[in-house]
Design a protein around this nucleic acid. Structure first.
Length: 500
RNA sequence: GGCGCCAUCGUCUAUCGGUUAGGACAGCCGCCUUUCACGUGGCAAAGACGGGUUCGAUUCCCGUUGGCGCUACCA
């Protein structure tokens, strides 16, 4: 049987290096065995999924040099490859489960479920649906449905016995059924949850090996059970370790840059980044050169060499590798072209130039004025950040508030950025002009520069987050207590927004 | 709290019962060099702990500890 793997990102934010890591492993495994690698978009979360995010994810993976045999952009015989376009399919299978008696409608309110879980936790029990709606008669269910009560569909899960999950890398993993929750398969909006969609799609798309992050191990029993209910052959499961921050916690943008776009903006070469991820995804035999292109990685790939412990994303090693690519794999012409493509693409240059035109008297003023567009993290002078009309506390608050709000921003553009910063100044009860100053310093390195919102837009969300973080750290990162207090400020106005 | 995964230098890792526990990044010290960088030579650095199994455990088993994940009508 032909090996078929997939990567199934959820388009709910900026492209993440973890997605690239999982994609690379799936790609290498499939290609090593002469198989197919597909890309599927898991956009069943209507509230958070966006087309912009999807576009950015595909672009980023392509930028890294990854390609797929089937996917939303290239099509294929098992489409559509976007789950939001497969609703009819899931409905059919949910109905099958309902008809077979393997799933049931649940009318419980979120409040009741919440109470139930609180009680279970207090009693030291595993959180698990208590089966109230399972006791309803068909008439009762029909009555509620007719009355227009919202419901979800849950899968039935046995009360006794255990489930053995077979992981190709870790061996057998045992779960007692009583610790497995009766997962929601279909939400009240009629869309499936990950659990159902993923099983149905993997089967229909003839996926042979599911290689996904280890955060899925605990829900694997549900998937095993669904395959049983449907009578389908289970694909092989391989759970991949999660990339870590230097402090060993799961890699998160709160602590570290996680965006592929950040590494792009920092001037890492795609082949170096991919090579680096390859080093973390498959340990190579002793003495082998660690510099390798995608075809080498495919050729050398083996399941047994996928690490189990979560590797720290060690930027220092990435730096070394990237340096090697720059000086060993590029001749002067190629280097020049890379530099041009990185920071001097015509439309980027055009925008940058237009921002500066009224602010220079000689062209030679440009270098210092615009250098921050061609830099990574800026060395921030704490005195500069403090020099305005705001107190230290206010500056720190402003930076922290902006970071949080900027992360929550749907689309990264001038209007959104302006909205966030204006809101921060209102929250603090300060003139925008005074609030703006530390941002100029943090983002452009100087209190006077080209228009801030455009600069931030051009720099990108990841780079902005890093510079704000650098600035905030220079003044003292907020304590846990301060964070909680400051977040209340945001929450309070969020409620007002909803009310109005 | 419950359930699960993981555990070799600071970091990424090799070792598939017997090794002076190897390599790479970072660090430190030299060499090269008009500075720096590159390159190059070297140094330092690890089997979490406690029990077993075995002639012999880093390696196999159990426990402890620690890290991590999941615990949603998110994925």
């Amino acid at each position: 049987m032909k090996v078929r793997t997939r990567v199934a990102p959820s388009p709910t934010g900026d492209p993440h290096v973890g997605t690239a890591y999982v994609a690379l492993i799936n790609y290498c495994f499939a290609k090593h065995h002469g198989g197919d690698f597909l890309l599927r978009i898991e956009d069943t979360d209507q509230a958070r999924s966006t087309r912009e995010s999807e576009r950015a994810i595909l672009d980023s993976l392509h930028w890294l040099g990854l390609s797929w045999d089937e996917g939303p952009d290239v099509g294929g015989p098992h489409g559509p490859y976007r789950q939001s376009e497969r609703s009819a399919i899931y409905k059919r299978y949910v109905q099958q489960l309902l008809d077979q008696g393997d799933a049931f409608k649940c009318f419980c309110t979120p409040e009741r479920l919440e109470e139930m879980r609180v009680a279970q936790r207090a009693a030291g029990l595993p959180p698990r649906y208590d089966g109230l709606c399972l006791s309803y008669s068909p008439e009762e269910i029909a009555r509620r449905e007719a009355a227009g009560e919202a419901y979800v569909v849950r899968m039935k899960v046995p009360d006794h016995g255990a489930c053995i999950v077979e992981d190709e890398r870790r061996g057998k993993i045992e779960f007692e059924w009583k610790t497995v929750d009766m997962q929601v398969l279909m939400k009240s909006d009629g869309l499936p949850t990950y659990h159902l969609a993923n099983v149905v799609d993997d089967h229909l798309m003839e996926i042979t090996h599911v290689m996904r992050g280890e955060e899925w191990i605990s829900s694997a029993p549900k998937h095993v059970l669904l395959y049983q209910y449907f009578g389908w052959q289970m694909p092989k499961l391989i759970h991949l370790p999660l990339l870590r921050n230097p402090d060993k916690s799961k890699l998160s943008k709160r602590k570290n840059p996680t965006g592929i776009l950040f590494y792009q903006a920092m001037g890492y070469l795609p082949e170096a980044l991919l090579n680096f991820l390859g080093l973390l995804s498959n340990s190579l035999p002793e003495g082998q050169d660690e510099m390798m292109l995608l075809p080498d990685m495919v050729q050398r790939f083996s399941l047994e060499h996928i690490p189990l412990g979560g590797p720290v994303f060690d930027v220092a090693k990435l730096d070394w590798l990237n340096g090697r690519y720059i000086r060993e794999r590029l001749d002067p012409d190629q280097f020049m072209q890379r530099v041009a493509a990185w920071g001097f693409a015509p439309d980027r240059l055009k925008r940058i130039a237009s921002l500066s035109q009224t602010r220079v008297e000689r062209l030679s003023d440009l270098g210092l004025l615009l250098s921050f567009f061609f830099a990574g993290r800026l060395p921030v002078a704490a005195e500069q950040l403090r020099a305005g009309k705001m107190s230290d506390l206010e500056v720190r608050q402003a930076l922290a508030l902006a970071m949080w709000d900027l992360d929550a921003l749907r689309a990264w553009n001038v209007a959104g950025i302006e909205m966030v910063l204006k809101r921060v100044s209102e929250l603090l009860g300060k003139k925008f002009r005074d609030v703006a100053r530390p941002f100029y310093v943090a983002i452009t390195g100087s209190p006077t520069s080209v228009p801030l919102f455009d600069a931030m837009d051009l720099l990108g969300r990841d780079m902005v987050r890093e510079r704000l973080r650098t600035a905030l750290d220079a003044l003292g990162a907020p304590s846990k207590k301060e964070q909680d207090e400051w977040k209340k400020l945001l929450a309070a106005t969020d409620k007002e927004d909803e009310a109005s």
